[in-house]
Computed example of a mutant assay.
Amino acid sequence: MTRAETTGLRERTRRAVRAELAELALGLFVEHGYERTTVEDIAAAAGLSKRSFFRYFPTKEDVLFGDVDELADQIADAIRERPAGEDPWTCLHLVLRDWEGRIHAAQRELTGLRLIETTPALRARLHQKRDELRARIATALRERPGSTLDAFTADLLTAAAGAALDAAAREWLRSDGTADRSALIAEAFAVLSPHPAKPAPA
């Protein structure tokens, strides 16, 4: 087996363990409550030591946020790769629309989102993660070929895009997960658009 194959296998194994820990943790949080569930409880359910748990997640809060940090880098790369002539708001809409499903999957979907919304520690961690994501996205907007955006405008557009996603997510929760998330996002971006409304490309 080559070094690249070994590295790839190791990374796939790591991802599988992280996913298992996240699923086990979510089940324990729902059954016993977030505050009452310890890292030791999660590790024991997975047959790991507490020390091993921290090899996969830096904190208990992070177990519900999956690969958000890695996603942030990939989203930023996707923004940099959009056509140079595309206006920033359309760029944000199309990229975040395409990535929204994976962002939600990283937050464990409906049950996880509800838990996050009702747990102060998790909400605080979510806001921190979102701030970090928005900072990377704002930087990526300014780094696009031909971009003339200043830092203030990039921050403002990114914050508005984040508000659109947040509002769409809350409406999705209110619908018990039955609403069309893509349609909600499109509506939110249309309402906040700094330009006359235009249908997004299919």
Rank of each mutant, 00 (worst) to 15 (best):
M1E: 05
T2W: 03
T2K: 09
T2I: 06
R3P: 06
E5T: 06
E5F: 06
G8D: 11
R10D: 13
E11T: 11
R12P: 00
A16C: 03
A16E: 14
A16P: 00
L21Y: 13
L21E: 12
L21P: 11
A22S: 15
E23V: 08
L24A: 12
L28G: 03
F29T: 05
F29G: 08
V30R: 06
H32W: 05
H32C: 08
G33R: 11
Y34C: 12
R36W: 03
R36T: 07
T37H: 04
V39K: 07
E40R: 07
E40K: 02
E40D: 06
D41F: 00
I42F: 01
A44M: 00
A45V: 03
A45W: 04
A45M: 03
A46T: 05
G47F: 09
L48F: 10
L48P: 04
F53P: 05
P58V: 09
E61N: 15
V63K: 02
F65M: 08
F65K: 07
F65T: 07
G66T: 02
D67N: 08
V68T: 08
V68C: 01
E70S: 05
E70K: 02
L71G: 00
A72S: 13
D73N: 02
Q74Y: 04
A76W: 09
A76C: 08
A78K: 00
A78C: 01
R80I: 08
E81H: 11
R82M: 13
R82W: 01
D87W: 08
D87E: 14
P88K: 02
P88I: 04
P88L: 06
L92G: 08
H93C: 11
V95M: 10
L96K: 00
D98L: 00
R102I: 04
I103L: 12
H104I: 09
E109K: 13
E109M: 13
R114W: 08
P120W: 07
A121D: 11
L122M: 07
L126T: 02
H127Y: 04
Q128L: 10
D131R: 14
D131T: 07
E132H: 13
L133G: 03
A135T: 10
A135S: 09
I137Y: 09
T139Y: 03
T139M: 07
L141K: 00
L141D: 00
E143I: 10
G146R: 15
S147G: 15
S147E: 12
S147P: 13
A151Q: 12
F152Y: 05
T153K: 13
D155Q: 10
L157A: 02
L157Y: 15
T158K: 09
A160S: 11
A160L: 14
A160Y: 10
A160R: 14
A163G: 14
L165E: 15
D166K: 08
A167Q: 12
A167M: 10
A168K: 12
W172H: 14
W172S: 09
L173G: 07
L173I: 15
T178R: 15
S182E: 13
A186T: 15
A186N: 11
E187S: 13
E187A: 15
A188I: 09
A190E: 14
A190S: 14
L192C: 12
H195V: 06
H195M: 05
H195Q: 04
P196Q: 06
P196K: 07
A197K: 02
